[in-house]
Amino acid sequence: MPPVPTAHYVFLSAALFTIGMIGVLTRRNVVIILISIELMLNAVNINLVAFSNLLQSVNGQAFAIFVIVDAAAEAAVGLGIVIALFRNKETIQADEIDLMKW
């Protein structure tokens, strides 16, 4: 019996991604939306590492590091925006921020 089929890793990643996506699309709290985005990025990492292991190539892991770098940058800027938003609009509910309407 082989250890664990890669397909299971990929499915785990897809499931985690879907959970993150549901979080992004349904929660009203912007901070939790950002947390959900972190979940989605981690789903990607699981995938990358699984294939890195399958193909015996370190490239996947290098890319996972880039994804983490990206996640850090995104979290910093995203949370900066949340603070600026809260200061100006007194709310962090995603559906109360609809400036793009006009």
């Binding site: 349904t26 929660r27 009203r28 709290n29 603070i83 509910q93 559906d95």
Partner: peptide, 22 residues
């Protein structure tokens, strides 16, 4: 970082509101 921001932003208001969008 997330925890810091949660401390900075007043979340007591938000906690009382509806959790999920329509």
């Amino acid at each position: 970082l997330f925890l810091f921001v949660i401390m900075l932003v007043n979340l007591d208001e938000a906690a009382k509101k509806k959790q999920f969008a329509g």
